[in-house]
Design a protein around this nucleic acid. Structure first.
Lengths: 335, 335
DNA sequence: CCCACTTACGAAAACGATTTTTTAAATGCG
DNA sequence: CGCATTTAAAAAATCGTTTTCGTAAGTGGG
């Protein structure tokens, strides 16, 4: 079954294709009677303009490119849900790629989507990305780009993030208020801005409380569960038993959590623990874990709203290039 | 910065566009020397064929349409991860839509993607879908379609599923072997095939053990956590306290789990419970929950492999239209 | 040397829409 | 009535590729 084209309609009505096009698009110099006939027949034949032909002419699509490290991660899948929700209501669809935390793949994905002429990009960068040329190429071509959560700092575009330093400071201060003094921080790849910021918040909290910052209490690793397990393990192997852990994110916290349990230590009596992101699991483990709630769904929605605004050149509203979401500390039984 | 076209190359080399095209596509009737020159210049100018122009000509794209009820759900986001993984390695990208369990939106999404000329569809239907005309329309247009997990039964196409009845029977038999006799089943929308099959498995297990099938022990609801809570609540309100629960899926099981705890009943001493899907949370709650592991990532990968096979008309391999994955019962402390 | 055949390439059509330009007919005004 | 203007529609160009058809040279065999 072939799709109806504008030419099919034109032939049936014995008029030209251009007239059909203009009738359907409500151009003023088309006779009302003609318009009516064209629209009727279009409906009857189930006509739908071919978006590919349109895109070829306009060099634009109604597709938003989304690149995240891993689709199946709680935070990202929830953000993608939010993006799709907003996109759907604005007539856009989303093309989703995962970088698998791999810089090369992020570059390939970015280029592929660029050549597919997506209308704009929403990106959370991979752990291993330290070069931003592929994003600069987008700006050079005036392709709208919005970062969320993990932004590439040197690229001047919109960013939807939380105040990582502030939230971290609040989280660590909470630990201090509970009487903890020997607080370890399980950090991530320090090249990443979110890791830097969370480390900064950790240090600030200690400083404010006049507690020493001890290098051996800070461990660097990746952002996965296994990395948290390893980092915690390295502390224990060094015979360091902190009385509290602040993890750079929830998977790392969960990994540390498992290692702590394996060591026969009690949470929170022996070691308290705070995560970051409010992944669903944190509320369901025993004991439930204190964590920082990042409103992932809302951040996705906001990123999409900003991007669509940029695409449609309605530049109103967003005078500040960085939108900071409020992250709130959710206190549970692990502290 | 405009993108380089085939015509730019043609002009610079003072040859025709068609020659450039054929040179790049390695046609035999182009002089080797010409080919070399064209390819060199293409590389130098950073030429990349415009996929939109190609698609217009071929009426095909390198895009796979994916429609799921909700992106942020564990099972689906993990399956999408698998789909993307396979798609990426075959040069496809994925256009992802969520139906939000809404039939109307599923239809709209299907049509939108169809008009965008996606090369094929991978779909898991919404809870409220009882009419399959929008899928039939795809088959009529010879657009490849693969269902996974939640298939629409009357549409004759490939399905990647697990044997729900068998797995359910195994799960319930496991409960019976543990000595449980008053086993309730929290079911979902009974119009959905997976719900029918899981109910069937539940009944079969009881029959095999010569246990009575009691209507009041079977409760119907939705597929969300809140539905599980409600169904469990309705049992308790009727003063029915089963000694075991078999839930149609993990969210429903978790909802019931919460209601059971609220009632002050112990798991598994008072009520044992089995879920379905092996969502990550089931292993992290206290006590960890017995559940049926559906290999979501692998099912996504398989669905993508089959679809790409169909797209590329390599029909080898898949003689059976239904691919059944082995689901395995993961026994944990809730039983 | 001539005709058939190969080689290598160009011209043009096609994909389906939009948009610019052109044209024909109708209308208005002095 | 005649010229200018408006109205409504057709024709043609365009987007970037692919593909069909055609053709000018060059080659080889008789």
């Amino acid at each position: 079954m072939r799709n109806t084209t504008i030419i099919d309609i034109a032939k049936k009505l014995k008029i030209s294709a251009s007239t059909v096009s203009r009738a359907l698009n409500n151009y003023p110099d088309i006779n009302e009677e003609t318009k009516k006939q064209v629209k009727q027949l279009a409906k009857k034949l189930n006509y739908w303009p071919n978006p590919i032909a349109r895109s070829l002419k306009s060099n634009k699509t109604n597709v938003i490119g989304v690149i995240v490290p891993e689709i199946k991660h709680d935070f990202f899948s929830s953000a993608i849900s939010g993006i799709e929700e907003v996109a759907y209501h604005s007539g856009f669809t989303i093309l989703v790629c995962q970088s698998n935390e791999d810089y090369e793949r992020e570059v390939i994905n970015t280029n592929a989507l660029m050549h597919q002429r997506v209308a704009g990009f929403i990106v959370s960068i991979s752990q291993t990305t330290t070069n931003g040329d592929h994003f600069q190429a987008l700006l050079d071509r005036k392709i709208p780009l919005v970062f969320f959560d993990r932004a590439f700092n040197d690229i001047p575009t919109y960013k939807v993030i939380i105040d990582d330093a502030k939230s971290s400071c609040i989280a660590v201060t909470h630990l201090i208020e509970r009487g903890h003094k020997k607080i370890a921080h399980l950090s991530g790849p320090i090249a990443m801005d979110i890791c830097k910021q969370r480390l900064k918040g950790y240090k600030n909290a200690l400083k404010k409380a006049s507690l020493p910052i001890m290098k051996e209490l800070i461990r660097y690793g990746g952002l996965q569960e296994s990395d948290g397990y390893t980092s915690m393990d390295s502390l224990l192997r060094d015979n360091i038993i902190p009385d509290a852990i602040f993890a750079v994110n929830d998977p790392v916290a969960i990994g540390a959590f498992q290692r702590i349990k394996e060591a026969g230590l009690r949470i929170p009596q022996d070691i308290a623990i705070v995560g970051f992101s409010n992944n669903k699991i944190t509320s369901l483990i025993e004991p439930p874990m204190t964590t920082v709630n990042q409103p992932s769904f809302e951040m996705g929605k906001k990123a999409a709203e900003i991007l669509i605004d940029m695409i449609e050149k309605r530049k109103n509203g967003y005078t500040n290039k960085t939108v900071v979401f409020e992250a709130e500390l959710i206190v549970r039984e692990s502290t």
